[in-house]
Design a protein around this nucleic acid. Structure first.
Length: 636
DNA sequence: ACGATCACG
DNA sequence: ACGTACGTGATCGTG
């Protein structure tokens, strides 16, 4: 057995790396030593759990003083045995990843291990949801360990990266050009890291040491975070709730979504061809790279175009807010506006960029990310944003184009199944009506009226026009975000005086919205700079953006309502139908014959009455693909 | 690493 | 006193 010493917060700790079966006798003694939660982590060949070459290399266990780093190939039986013991509880940082690794590699099924694993990420997010970038303590293991455990905590990830770079350089000298190209093709951004995780010697002393340190940090983090969490009465309940929600989204990630491969391959060809045509046009105007803001700016100025919009750093903005009007294209419908002669360069650039993005970020990502049965398994983070909103990545399925069915058409139901979905109707406005006790809004909801129609009628009278409704909708949503007249005017694209009028009227008819926002800001200023949501979640406010208070509470509460719905659906035994949450809707699958019944029932489970306000849902049968909910024809 | 851009609710 | 649009993830160019 190899034993590596290290220091954590001034304490001597040991990292044990067993080499023979006899070495496991000591490991058993470690496990038997008292009733404590054991740190758990895995080292793998990469992040693509469902890819063909994926393997789990190490599984680590540890407490606050010692770690056991086990080779997954050599000690698979032991690992299986330990993970299956029902009396053992574990703690991991970002548990969903390790749970899925252990599930995928047949070391322990998700449903067997999941309920016994605490996640320090979840606890840390409840204490402070801000990333280091966002002014918080951060949510990564190294950042948290530095704050809560040891000011000199090792950056194990950076340490490994340095080793990988060194090893990769040495390997590159002996490897063939083809081998090197293959690695770079698979991981163009940081090839040495992808290569390192697969190829570093499994008994490399620093690899083993860092692997062991991570579980020691996790075990120590659990102790510290638990103490802090227990100080807030509601927080312990919240922690339980969030672990349950996270387990459900982890199951969604395991389930994945089926890709229509022939369709998607055709889509890539079409999008690539479209992009190429417009890139060619742009090149004829001297823009060699349509993604270069520098080139685009220079070419447009040379053509005599003038515009005033700038980026945060003061440079001329050449996003679609600038280019769409130049190309005389409506941003929503992509039809001619008829305001001016379209600038052919602006037109080519927006079309080229759109087609390229759709090809690369969506269609090709679907094809590259799929497993051997053509399913993709996006990461579903149940507790992501500062407001606790969920996020989906690899690929970003919450951000697929909705104005056009072509991308969503690539996600299909299994044979005999149909895609169904249920969304909440104007969820955030209803939550606002409830939280701020907005009388007129609550009355309109009770009467089943369209909220934007209603706001328009209050501002403009019963004879409001379509444009009035558009303004009322923009103002209604913008007010929740804390927007003022100028910002709203820009966003809605309506003249400032009209927006000012609407905003003033809005404040008159819904006075409770303003007083609620002021109350939240007062409470935050005396409550450590954070607002507290109805379920007891603390959300820190930035000093200079106190106006965000209302939005934080509204957005967070809306998220908690859909999270609660996931639990109710699970309690009803219907979790297997849920494919993906998209903020205020659930994308689901159901046997074609019962599709309508299933989604009606899921919709019913989603509904609730929150502070006396009905939060109801709109169940819908889409069809054989997700795109069928967005107008995809049956014969594509 | 960071800014700009663009996709969503 | 005034006014502030909220939250994400991915890609690309630039330095």
């Amino acid at each position: 057995m190899k034993i590596y010493p290290y220091r954590v917060d001034g304490d001597a700790v040991t990292i044990n790396f067993p080499e023979r079966d006899e070495d496991l006798v000591e490991f058993e003694k470690f496990l038997a030593r008292g009733n404590r939660t054991i740190g758990l982590d895995t080292e793998t060949t990469g992040l693509h759990i469902y890819g063909g070459q994926f393997a789990c290399r190490l599984v680590q266990f540890g407490d606050e003083r010692e770690a056991w780093v086990l080779r997954a190939d050599q000690f698979a039986d032991k690992i299986r045995d330990v993970l299956a013991r029902p009396n053992l509880k574990f703690v991991a940082h970002n548990a969903p990843f390790d749970l899925l690794v252990l599930d995928r590699t047949d070391l322990c099924p998700l449903d067997v291990l999941g309920p016994r694993v605490y996640d320090t990420y979840v606890l840390a997010h409840l204490l402070d949801p801000r990333t280091a970038n966002d002014g918080g303590p951060g949510l990564k293991l190294k950042e948290l360990a530095t704050v809560y455990v040891d000011n000199d905590a090792a950056d194990t990830q950076e340490g490994l990266n340095a080793i990988f770079l060194d090893l990769f350089r040495k390997w590159s000298k002996t490897a063939s050009t083809e081998e090197i190209e293959a690695v770079k093709r698979a991981a163009p951004k940081r090839p040495h890291i992808a290569w390192g995780f697969t190829n570093i010697a499994i008994d490399h002393p620093l690899y083993v040491t860092y692997a062991g340190l991570d579980v020691i940090y996790a075990a120590r983090l659990l102790r510290e975070l638990s103490i802090l969490i227990r100080k807030g009465e509601r927080q312990s309940e919240l922690a339980k709730f969030e672990h349950r929600v996270q387990l459900l989204t982890t199951a969604q990630q395991k389930r994945g979504l089926l890709i229509d491969v022939p369709y998607t391959e055709g889509l890539v060809v079409d999008l690539r061809a479209e992009a190429e045509r417009h890139v060619y046009t742009a090149a004829s105007f001297g823009v060699e790279n349509v993604n270069s803001t520098k080139q685009v700016t220079e070419a447009l100025l040379a053509m005599g175009e003038e515009w005033s919009a700038t980026t945060a750093t003061g440079k001329p903005a050449v996003g679609k807010d600038t280019l769409n009007p130049m190309a005389d294209i409506d941003a929503r419908s992509w039809e001619r506006l008829g305001n001016r002669d379209p600038n052919p360069l602006a037109d080519a650039i927006i079309r080229a960029k759109r087609a390229e993005k759709w090809a690369v970020a969506y269609a090709e990502a679907f094809l590259h990310g799929r497993d051997d049965v053509n399913r993709i398994h996006p990461f579903v983070k149940a507790l992501a944003a500062r407001t606790a909103r969920m996020s989906v990545s690899n690929p970003p399925l919450q951000q697929l184009p909705s104005s056009d069915w072509t991308i969503r058409r690539a996600i299909i139901a299994e044979e005999g199944q149909t895609i169904v979905a249920a969304d909440y109707k104007s969820m955030e406005l209803r939550v606002l009506a409830a939280l701020a006790e907005v009388k007129e809004m609550q009355a309109a909801i009770r009467e089943g009226r369209d909220l934007h129609d209603f706001t328009a009628s209050l501002i403009y009278g019963a004879d409001f026009t379509k444009n009035h409704r558009r303004l009322a909708k923009g103002v209604g949503l913008g007010k929740v975000f804390g927007g003022g007249a100028a910002g709203l005017s820009k966003q809605i694209g309506a003249p400032l005086d009209q927006v000012k009028y609407a905003v003033n009227k809005y404040d008159e008819v819904y006075p409770e919205v303003r007083t609620y926002g002021n109350r939240l800001q007062r409470q935050a200023s005396y409550g450590g700079g954070a607002v507290v949501t109805p379920i007891g979640r603390r959300i820190p406010l930035d000093r200079d953006r106190a106006y965000a208070a209302t939005n934080y509470v509204v957005q967070s509460t809306a998220r908690d309502l859909i999270a609660q719905a996931l639990i109710r659906i699970d309690d009803a035994g219907m979790s297997d139908h849920v494919l993906l949450p998209v903020h205020d809707e659930l994308i689901c699958t159901a046997p074609t014959a019962d599709a309508e019944d299933v989604i009606r029932e899921i919709g019913r489970l989603m509904e609730s009455t929150f502070m006396g306000v009905k939060i109801d849902s709109d169940p819908e049968v889409y069809g054989p693909s997700w795109g069928h909910g967005y107008g995809a024809p049956d014969d594509v």
